[in-house]
Design a protein around this nucleic acid. Structure first.
Lengths: 241, 241
DNA sequence: GGCTTAGTATGGTATATACCAGTTGAGAAT
DNA sequence: ATTCTCAACTGGTATATACCATACTAAGCC
């Protein structure tokens, strides 16, 4: 079957080798689609097929109307480890960044209502944040907290680590987590923040978190750039529920 | 930004609604690309963009040269639960199937060598299996076992559950697992078995498994149809390593 | 310096068309 | 009834071309 028969696969392989060999360095920009298609004696459409294929494997990524780039190494993310984004990224020798976009109190969206097991239209705190690695936006997060457990949350300095605020002001810490992973096409909100084309593929990690008393305290939706992360975990095997 | 401005997004939305409303039932075949593009007064290329977008969200899937279909509900898969494929799928009211493709002894591929922490070219047992839900192939698995822990493995009836064989003949059971998740374009091997186009997106779950004595006994590579599964887990939060 | 503005380059979207390569089903041959 | 053959149909790949929307740049202005 198909390694090198079709033209777009031949081009794909050629670009792949350029990346592997290090001729194209992580983070560097590829030549323009028009120039590349000319070099490979093909059309932009076919060339874009090759690029999309590489994109699906996370080897290259694009920024809307800016160009194609070679993907940097992935960050490893373990949802079961009690460490914040900053700590995890720093430990991997990378430079993390966080930008608070918005914090408010809103009626719980349907999905949040279900996850937090609260009545319809219950107000919940919502935090929207954008996180980066080495200056590249890789993660858009929406956090929803049950205000019953976090009175006056918005009064605190939300630019700090959430888990620190939980610990200091409410004496709560994450003790158990339940998460689900969906490969998705990124929605308009996430893709605009991550500067990718609407609908380009990403990874949605949906978490519900419990504190030391097994109370369901919050949930979040993490929209990752598909090529920026590898989800990993290391746990004991459990008997079936 | 982009919900309904571009034509391919309008078409996407229209098809999406047809699926949501139940006019197009899970598993049913969509009209041909040519017919659909005519109905929406557009070209096949644009229509295929809409379909690819829906495919990225796992709402539709395609079978190579057979057509496009509405995706059935996803199966939930928890890598931390000690239950075999058959049990998990049955518990969700679905009908599982397994086909043994090949079983042999091969020199460990580089990745396997690394994961199992064995010297280069150590022979390992390899099992290739294809698994289905409700008659649809959703998972291609390659299993690699360290023969030091499973002498004469191939002598046993490998159509049975692996964990049963482990337990019965070797007194070993899974106690701990480490796994990593990669969204990937499916390789030629996996895609031909899953009847998808080479390079179409899938989910690779790479597991390394330890027994009750904490011995690294095997690893496997699970190539899932991207739209067929949702990875979920439920664990305690661990301190950072 | 800092701001505005127009031009250019880039990727994003779209049309029209053609041929290739498996799948399928109907009909012929047995 | 069973098998074989072949034509029709499906999605897969490819060419050629055009225009749109945004990002960037360099020139002009204050």
């Amino acid at each position: 079957m198909g390694q090198g028969k079709n033209q777009y696969q031949i081009i794909r392989t050629a670009l792949h080798e350029q990346i592997e060999s290090g001729a194209l360095k992580p983070g560097s920009k590829l030549p323009s689609e028009r120039l590349l298609s000319e070099k490979f004696s093909t059309t932009r459409i076919t060339l874009r097929e090759s690029l999309s294929s590489l994109e699906a494997d996370g080897l290259v990524y694009r920024e809307d109307r800016r160009g194609w780039f070679v993907s940097p190494e992935r960050v490893t993310y373990d949802p079961t480890v009690n460490a914040n984004f900053h700590t995890i990224v720093t430990h991997q020798g990378r430079v993390p960044g966080t930008r608070m976009l918005h914090a408010d109190l809103v009626p719980a969206p349907t999905r949040v209502q279900k996850l937090l097991q609260i009545p319809a239209l219950t107000p919940v705190y919502r935090l929207q944040r954008l996180r980066s690695v080495d200056g590249r936006n890789v993660l858009y997060v929406e956090n929803y907290m049950n205000p019953a457990y976090f009175p006056d949350l918005l009064q605190h300095d939300l630019s700090r680590s959430l888990s620190d605020i939980y610990q200091e002001h409410y004496n709560r810490r994450y003790a158990r987590v339940s998460f689900r992973l969906y490969p998705v096409g990124l929605n308009a909100e996430a893709s605009s923040h991550l500067k990718v084309t609407t609908g380009s593929s990403g990874l949605l990690v949906e978490r519900t978190n419990y504190d030391q008393s097994n109370l369901l305290i919050d949930c979040d939706f993490e929209y990752w750039r598909q090529d920026a992360v590898v989800i990993a975990a290391n746990t004991t095997i459990n008997p079936m529920a």
